[in-house]
Protein backbone atom coordinates (compact mmCIF):
# COMPACT_ATOMS: atom_id res chain seq x y z
CA UNK A 1 0.00 0.00 0.00
CA UNK A 2 1.36 3.38 -0.93
CA UNK A 3 1.88 6.07 1.65
CA UNK A 4 -0.88 8.69 1.82
CA UNK A 5 -1.51 11.86 3.71
CA UNK A 6 -5.02 11.83 5.13
CA UNK A 7 -6.62 15.24 5.59
CA UNK A 8 -7.98 15.47 9.14
CA UNK A 9 -8.69 19.22 8.85
CA UNK A 10 -8.11 21.43 5.80
CA UNK A 11 -8.02 24.82 7.58
CA UNK A 12 -9.58 27.84 5.84
CA UNK A 13 -8.14 26.98 2.41
CA UNK A 14 -5.63 24.33 1.42
CA UNK A 15 -5.00 23.53 -2.24
CA UNK A 16 -2.57 21.36 -4.16
CA UNK A 17 -0.13 23.30 -6.35
CA UNK A 18 2.98 22.69 -8.41
CA UNK A 19 4.63 25.14 -10.83
CA UNK A 20 1.57 25.27 -13.09
CA UNK A 21 0.65 24.71 -16.73
CA UNK A 22 2.63 25.53 -19.85
CA UNK A 23 1.26 26.65 -23.18
CA UNK A 24 -2.44 26.44 -22.30
CA UNK A 25 -3.18 30.18 -22.31
CA UNK A 26 -4.27 30.05 -25.96
CA UNK A 27 -7.19 27.82 -24.99
CA UNK A 28 -8.16 30.03 -22.07
CA UNK A 29 -6.37 28.23 -19.24
CA UNK A 30 -3.71 30.18 -17.35
CA UNK A 31 -0.46 29.17 -15.75
CA UNK A 32 -1.72 28.76 -12.16
CA UNK A 33 0.67 26.94 -9.79
CA UNK A 34 1.95 27.98 -6.36
CA UNK A 35 1.18 31.63 -5.57
CA UNK A 36 4.64 31.88 -3.97
CA UNK A 37 6.78 29.79 -6.28
CA UNK A 38 10.04 30.47 -4.43
CA UNK A 39 8.65 28.95 -1.22
CA UNK A 40 7.32 25.88 -3.09
CA UNK A 41 10.74 25.33 -4.68
CA UNK A 42 12.46 25.74 -1.33
CA UNK A 43 10.19 23.19 0.36
CA UNK A 44 10.73 20.70 -2.45
CA UNK A 45 14.51 21.12 -2.45
CA UNK A 46 14.56 20.53 1.31
CA UNK A 47 12.99 17.07 0.90
CA UNK A 48 15.09 16.30 -2.23
CA UNK A 49 12.15 16.53 -4.65
CA UNK A 50 12.25 18.07 -8.12
CA UNK A 51 11.51 21.79 -7.58
CA UNK A 52 8.13 21.57 -9.26
CA UNK A 53 6.70 18.60 -7.34
CA UNK A 54 3.12 19.06 -6.14
CA UNK A 55 2.71 20.22 -2.54
CA UNK A 56 -0.04 21.71 -0.36
CA UNK A 57 -0.50 25.49 -0.33
CA UNK A 58 -2.03 26.37 3.02
CA UNK A 59 -3.64 29.77 3.49
CA UNK A 60 -3.43 30.98 7.11
CA UNK A 61 -2.62 27.58 8.63
CA UNK A 62 -5.07 25.14 10.18
CA UNK A 63 -4.13 22.07 8.14
CA UNK A 64 -3.90 18.65 9.83
CA UNK A 65 -2.48 15.65 7.99
CA UNK A 66 -2.03 12.05 9.14
CA UNK A 67 0.53 9.74 7.58
CA UNK A 68 -1.27 6.57 6.45
CA UNK A 69 0.28 3.39 5.04
CA UNK A 70 3.83 4.33 6.05
CA UNK A 71 6.00 7.20 7.25
CA UNK A 72 6.51 10.46 5.38
CA UNK A 73 9.22 13.13 5.32
CA UNK A 74 7.94 16.71 5.26
CA UNK A 75 9.06 20.32 5.21
CA UNK A 76 6.97 23.49 5.68
CA UNK A 77 8.08 26.77 4.09
CA UNK A 78 6.42 30.05 3.09
CA UNK A 79 4.44 31.87 5.77
CA UNK A 80 6.07 30.80 9.05
CA UNK A 81 3.68 28.98 11.38
CA UNK A 82 3.85 26.62 14.33
CA UNK A 83 4.27 23.01 13.13
CA UNK A 84 3.75 20.04 15.41
CA UNK A 85 3.86 16.26 15.05
CA UNK A 86 1.55 14.58 17.58
CA UNK A 87 1.68 17.80 19.58
CA UNK A 88 5.49 17.97 19.63
CA UNK A 89 6.88 21.18 18.17
CA UNK A 90 9.04 20.66 15.08
CA UNK A 91 8.74 24.11 13.46
CA UNK A 92 8.63 25.45 9.95
CA UNK A 93 11.74 25.49 7.76
CA UNK A 94 12.82 22.08 9.11
CA UNK A 95 12.82 18.66 7.50
CA UNK A 96 10.96 16.26 9.79
CA UNK A 97 9.66 12.68 9.69
CA UNK A 98 6.02 11.86 10.32
CA UNK A 99 5.73 8.23 11.46
CA UNK A 100 2.80 6.16 10.22
CA UNK A 101 -0.31 7.11 12.20
CA UNK A 102 1.18 10.39 13.43
CA UNK A 103 -0.49 13.74 12.81
CA UNK A 104 1.21 16.90 11.62
CA UNK A 105 -0.57 20.14 12.39
CA UNK A 106 0.01 23.69 11.14
CA UNK A 107 -0.98 26.51 13.49
CA UNK A 108 -1.94 29.99 12.33
CA UNK A 109 0.75 31.70 10.30
CA UNK A 110 2.58 34.35 12.34
CA UNK A 111 3.53 36.42 9.26
CA UNK A 112 2.82 36.05 5.55
CA UNK A 113 -0.26 34.39 4.10
CA UNK A 114 0.58 31.07 2.43
CA UNK A 115 2.61 28.14 3.76
CA UNK A 116 3.81 25.19 1.66
CA UNK A 117 3.91 21.60 2.85
CA UNK A 118 6.13 19.44 0.70
CA UNK A 119 6.42 15.69 1.18
CA UNK A 120 9.35 13.62 -0.05
CA UNK A 121 8.13 11.97 -3.29
CA UNK A 122 5.63 14.75 -3.97
CA UNK A 123 1.83 14.47 -4.03
CA UNK A 124 0.87 12.01 -6.74
CA UNK A 125 -2.65 13.20 -7.58
CA UNK A 126 -3.77 13.02 -11.25
CA UNK A 127 -2.52 15.74 -13.60
CA UNK A 128 -4.91 17.99 -15.51
CA UNK A 129 -3.41 19.57 -18.64
CA UNK A 130 0.09 18.65 -17.48
CA UNK A 131 -0.12 20.01 -13.94
CA UNK A 132 -1.43 19.10 -10.49
CA UNK A 133 -2.35 22.70 -9.71
CA UNK A 134 -5.79 23.81 -8.58
CA UNK A 135 -6.82 26.82 -10.69
CA UNK A 136 -9.58 28.95 -9.14
CA UNK A 137 -10.15 30.95 -12.33
CA UNK A 138 -10.38 28.13 -14.87
CA UNK A 139 -12.07 25.84 -12.33
CA UNK A 140 -9.85 22.84 -12.93
CA UNK A 141 -7.17 20.72 -11.28
CA UNK A 142 -7.49 18.93 -7.93
CA UNK A 143 -10.28 20.36 -5.76
CA UNK A 144 -9.42 22.22 -2.53
CA UNK A 145 -8.70 19.77 0.28
CA UNK A 146 -11.58 18.43 2.36
CA UNK A 147 -11.63 16.41 5.54
CA UNK A 148 -11.13 12.73 4.74
CA UNK A 149 -9.23 13.23 1.46
CA UNK A 150 -6.29 10.88 1.06
CA UNK A 151 -3.39 12.33 -0.91
CA UNK A 152 -1.12 9.67 -2.43
CA UNK A 153 2.60 10.28 -1.95
CA UNK A 154 4.78 9.61 -5.00
CA UNK A 155 7.93 7.50 -5.14
CA UNK A 156 10.98 9.26 -3.73
CA UNK A 157 13.86 9.95 -6.08
CA UNK A 158 17.39 8.72 -5.61
CA UNK A 159 18.57 12.00 -4.07
CA UNK A 160 18.48 12.40 -0.30
CA UNK A 161 17.79 15.53 1.71
CA UNK A 162 21.06 17.15 2.73
CA UNK A 163 19.88 19.68 5.30
CA UNK A 164 17.76 19.48 8.45
CA UNK A 165 16.75 23.10 8.46
CA UNK A 166 16.62 26.11 6.16
CA UNK A 167 17.16 29.81 6.77
CA UNK A 168 13.63 31.30 6.88
CA UNK A 169 13.20 34.48 4.82
CA UNK A 170 11.71 37.43 6.68
CA UNK A 171 8.07 38.17 6.10
CA UNK A 172 8.14 41.09 8.55
CA UNK A 173 9.04 44.63 7.60
CA UNK A 174 7.81 46.86 4.81
CA UNK A 175 6.84 45.29 1.49
CA UNK A 176 8.28 47.11 -1.53
CA UNK A 177 7.39 45.63 -4.90
CA UNK A 178 9.52 46.53 -7.92
CA UNK A 179 7.40 47.35 -10.96
CA UNK A 180 8.01 48.22 -14.60
CA UNK A 181 5.88 51.06 -15.96
CA UNK A 182 3.45 50.26 -18.75
CA UNK A 183 2.14 49.01 -21.07
CA UNK A 184 -0.96 51.21 -20.47
CA UNK A 185 0.38 53.82 -18.03
CA UNK A 186 -0.89 56.49 -20.45
CA UNK A 187 -4.49 55.44 -19.75
CA UNK A 188 -4.49 56.90 -16.21
CA UNK A 189 -4.00 60.55 -15.31
CA UNK A 190 -1.20 60.02 -12.82
CA UNK A 191 0.57 56.65 -13.03
CA UNK A 192 3.15 57.86 -10.47
CA UNK A 193 0.42 57.58 -7.82
CA UNK A 194 1.31 53.90 -7.89
CA UNK A 195 4.75 54.60 -6.40
CA UNK A 196 3.85 57.58 -4.19
CA UNK A 197 0.92 55.93 -2.38
CA UNK A 198 1.12 53.65 0.63
CA UNK A 199 -1.33 50.95 -0.38
CA UNK A 200 -3.24 48.52 1.80
CA UNK A 201 -4.13 45.05 0.61
CA UNK A 202 -7.91 44.75 0.78
CA UNK A 203 -9.75 41.68 2.00
CA UNK A 204 -10.75 41.08 -1.63
CA UNK A 205 -7.63 39.05 -2.16
CA UNK A 206 -7.40 35.51 -3.46
CA UNK A 207 -5.27 33.42 -5.80
CA UNK A 208 -6.58 35.42 -8.78
CA UNK A 209 -5.42 38.79 -7.54
CA UNK A 210 -4.91 41.27 -4.74
CA UNK A 211 -7.00 44.45 -4.72
CA UNK A 212 -5.33 47.54 -3.29
CA UNK A 213 -6.80 50.47 -1.35
CA UNK A 214 -5.21 53.86 -0.80
CA UNK A 215 -5.77 55.99 -3.90
CA UNK A 216 -7.76 55.97 -7.12
CA UNK A 217 -5.92 55.87 -10.42
CA UNK A 218 -8.27 58.00 -12.49
CA UNK A 219 -8.66 57.13 -16.17
CA UNK A 220 -7.71 59.77 -18.73
CA UNK A 221 -10.95 59.05 -20.56
CA UNK A 222 -13.56 57.02 -18.67
CA UNK A 223 -15.51 56.27 -21.87
CA UNK A 224 -12.58 54.81 -23.74
CA UNK A 225 -12.54 51.01 -23.75
CA UNK A 226 -9.50 48.84 -24.19
CA UNK A 227 -9.92 45.75 -26.37
CA UNK A 228 -8.96 42.56 -24.48
CA UNK A 229 -5.23 42.04 -24.03
CA UNK A 230 -3.18 39.10 -22.84
CA UNK A 231 -2.36 39.20 -19.13
CA UNK A 232 0.49 37.88 -17.04
CA UNK A 233 1.26 37.32 -13.37
CA UNK A 234 2.24 40.59 -11.69
CA UNK A 235 0.15 42.81 -13.97
CA UNK A 236 -1.31 45.82 -12.12
CA UNK A 237 -4.71 46.26 -13.72
CA UNK A 238 -6.88 49.32 -13.10
CA UNK A 239 -10.66 48.68 -13.33
CA UNK A 240 -13.10 51.62 -13.61
CA UNK A 241 -13.18 51.97 -9.78
CA UNK A 242 -9.55 53.15 -9.98
CA UNK A 243 -8.46 50.68 -7.29
CA UNK A 244 -5.61 48.62 -8.74
CA UNK A 245 -5.51 44.83 -8.72
CA UNK A 246 -2.23 42.89 -8.77
CA UNK A 247 -2.69 39.66 -10.73
CA UNK A 248 -1.49 36.54 -8.94
CA UNK A 249 -1.18 32.87 -9.96
CA UNK A 250 -4.75 32.25 -11.19
CA UNK A 251 -5.22 35.53 -13.07
CA UNK A 252 -7.44 35.60 -16.18
CA UNK A 253 -5.62 34.87 -19.43
CA UNK A 254 -6.85 38.10 -21.00
CA UNK A 255 -8.23 41.26 -19.47
CA UNK A 256 -10.14 44.28 -20.68
CA UNK A 257 -8.86 46.93 -18.24
CA UNK A 258 -5.60 48.82 -18.69
CA UNK A 259 -2.46 47.35 -17.12
CA UNK A 260 -0.48 50.38 -15.94
CA UNK A 261 2.52 48.51 -14.54
CA UNK A 262 3.82 44.97 -14.12
CA UNK A 263 5.50 43.75 -10.92
CA UNK A 264 8.91 42.15 -11.46
CA UNK A 265 8.39 38.39 -11.62
CA UNK A 266 10.49 37.57 -8.54
CA UNK A 267 8.53 40.08 -6.43
CA UNK A 268 5.16 38.55 -7.31
CA UNK A 269 6.03 35.72 -4.89
CA UNK A 270 6.39 38.34 -2.14
CA UNK A 271 3.11 39.96 -3.21
CA UNK A 272 1.38 36.59 -2.74
CA UNK A 273 2.45 36.64 0.95
CA UNK A 274 0.87 40.03 1.71
CA UNK A 275 -2.00 39.71 4.17
CA UNK A 276 -5.28 41.57 3.84
CA UNK A 277 -4.82 44.83 5.76
CA UNK A 278 -1.05 44.86 5.31
CA UNK A 279 0.70 47.92 3.81
CA UNK A 280 2.81 47.84 0.68
CA UNK A 281 4.47 50.22 -1.74
CA UNK A 282 5.81 50.05 -5.28
CA UNK A 283 9.09 51.26 -6.72
CA UNK A 284 9.69 51.88 -10.43
CA UNK A 285 12.46 49.91 -12.09
CA UNK A 286 13.55 49.84 -15.70
CA UNK A 287 12.70 46.81 -17.78
CA UNK A 288 15.87 44.72 -18.17
Amino acid sequence: MTVRLRVRAPGPLSVIEDLGRHGTSGIGVGRSGAADRASLRQANRAVANPEGAAAVEVTLGGLELEAVGGPALLCVTGAPCPVTVDGRDVGAYCVFPVPEGSVVRLGPATAGLRSYVAVRGGLDVPEVLGSRSHDVMAGLGPAPLREGDELPVGAAGTAYPVVDSLPPPSFDGPVVLRAVRGPRDGWVKDPDLLVTTEWTASDKTNRVGMRLLGAELEPVDARRQLPSEGAYRGAVQVPPSGEPVVFLADHPVTGGYPVVAVVVDEDVDRAAQVRPGQALTFRWVEAP
Binding site: R184, E229, Y232, V263, D265
Partner: peptide
Amino acid sequence: VLPYGDRALL
Protein backbone atom coordinates in the same frame (compact mmCIF):
# COMPACT_ATOMS: atom_id res chain seq x y z
CA VAL B 1 6.45 46.75 -28.70
CA LEU B 2 5.39 47.91 -25.23
CA PRO B 3 7.01 46.96 -21.89
CA TYR B 4 5.27 44.28 -19.82
CA GLY B 5 7.40 43.70 -16.72
CA ASP B 6 10.66 41.79 -16.78
CA ARG B 7 9.32 38.60 -18.34
CA ALA B 8 7.05 39.69 -21.21
CA LEU B 9 6.45 42.19 -24.00
CA LEU B 10 3.20 43.41 -25.53
